[in-house]
Computed example of a mutant assay.
Amino acid sequence: MTAGDNQIPFLDLTGVNREVADEVRTGWDEIVRTARFVGGDAVTRFEAEWAQYCGTEYAVGVANGTDALHLVLRGLGIGPGDEVVVPANTFVATVEAIVLAGAVPRFADVDERTLLVTADTLKAAVTPATKALIPVHLYGQMPDLTAIATLADELGLMLVEDAAQAHGATWDGRRAGSFGRAACFSFYPGKNLGAFGDAGAVVTSDARLVELLLSMRDHGRAQNAVDGHFQHDVLGTNSRLDALQAVVLSAKLKRLDEWNASRRRLRAVYAERIDPAAATLVDELEGSAGSYHLAVVQVDDRDRVRADLAAEGIGTGIHYAAPCHLMAPYAEHASGELPVVEASAGRLLSLPMFPHLGTQDAERVADRLNAIVARTSR
Rank of each mutant, 00 (worst) to 15 (best):
F354P: 02
S350R: 03
D218T: 10
R240M: 11
R36M: 09
V117L: 11
A164D: 06
S350V: 13
E161Y: 02
A176V: 03
T316Q: 11
D233N: 14
R264Q: 15
A311F: 01
H232E: 06
L214M: 10
T26H: 06
L73Q: 05
G236C: 12
G75M: 09
E312Q: 15
D233F: 10
R378H: 14
A101I: 13
T114D: 07
H167A: 14
P329T: 08
A251Y: 03
D22Y: 05
A310D: 07
T90R: 01
L235K: 13
S335V: 05
F187K: 00
L281C: 12
W171N: 11
Q298I: 00
V20D: 10
D361E: 15
A307V: 01
T114L: 09
D242V: 12
D301S: 14
T2C: 03
A271Y: 06
A101E: 14
R106E: 07
G75V: 06
V210A: 01
R74I: 10
E47D: 11
E258V: 14
E332T: 13
D41W: 05
G168E: 02
D120K: 15
A307L: 12
S291N: 12
G336L: 11
R74A: 10
V32S: 02
I314D: 03
R267N: 08
R304G: 00
V365K: 06
R175Q: 10
E47F: 09
